[in-house]
Design a protein around this nucleic acid. Structure first.
Lengths: 102, 102
DNA sequence: AATATATATCGGAATAATTCGATATACAAT
DNA sequence: ATTGTATATCGAATTATTCCGATATATATT
């Protein structure tokens, strides 16, 4: 997050309510994604997030890709599923960066 | 900043490099706007900011308006000049809000 | 091999943000 | 009153973002 373009990507990623909402859901997966049968420690699978956003599968996928490019989430692919979880280190790094730069 | 729409406006306002740059300049007016003859305590007048952005007067004015609507800067009008300065309380409130919500 | 499922990517339409020059408004000075 | 200066606002062009349905890719199952 020392780089300026990185910070730009992160702020732009956060500048959409749906993407912030997704990050908020991922903060407490047990609460919001209890239907998922596999362990939530590995992340929440994309389809569960689709269902919650109310947007189309492709749109939600694009939002997730934006979050990932910004480093705000990390993914793990298992079989045909892709599990998303917050990248807490990068989120903290962003908060530090914005706190000192702003 | 307790309101959700407020936070949205602030993040959107920050999601543009020029607006962040303006906020950064306003952090140290003595350094960046030493040419201004009136006291910098009252803020930096809009025209000086125009000159620095490299954008047109109207565009810079729009950016300043966005920052103001978001509450990130406050203004003081003296004669035909409008002086801009950071609203430190609101900036801090934003940092608190994003730190806890993110 | 064929079918089904999960997710990503593509192409395009709709909307929003950025930018500019031109004009309007407000104030100051002659 | 006129002229000049500072800033805001308008209208329009450009660019970026969001969104969708359709298709592609990868994996799993039969």
């Amino acid at each position: 997050m020392t780089d300026k373009t990185e910070l730009d990507a992160v702020i732009k990623a956060l500048a959409h309510p749906v993407r912030r909402q997704i990050l908020a859901w991922l903060k407490d997966p047990e609460r919001w994604f209890s239907e998922q049968h596999t362990s939530l420690d590995g992340g929440v699978c994309a389809g569960m997030i689709d269902k919650k956003t109310g947007l189309s599968q492709s749109t939600t996928s694009a939002h997730l890709a934006t979050l990932q490019r910004a480093g705000l989430v990390e993914t793990q692919k298992i079989g045909q599923w892709i599990y998303y979880k917050r990248n807490e280190a990068n989120i903290r790094a962003f908060l530090d960066a914005i706190s000192t730069s702003l």
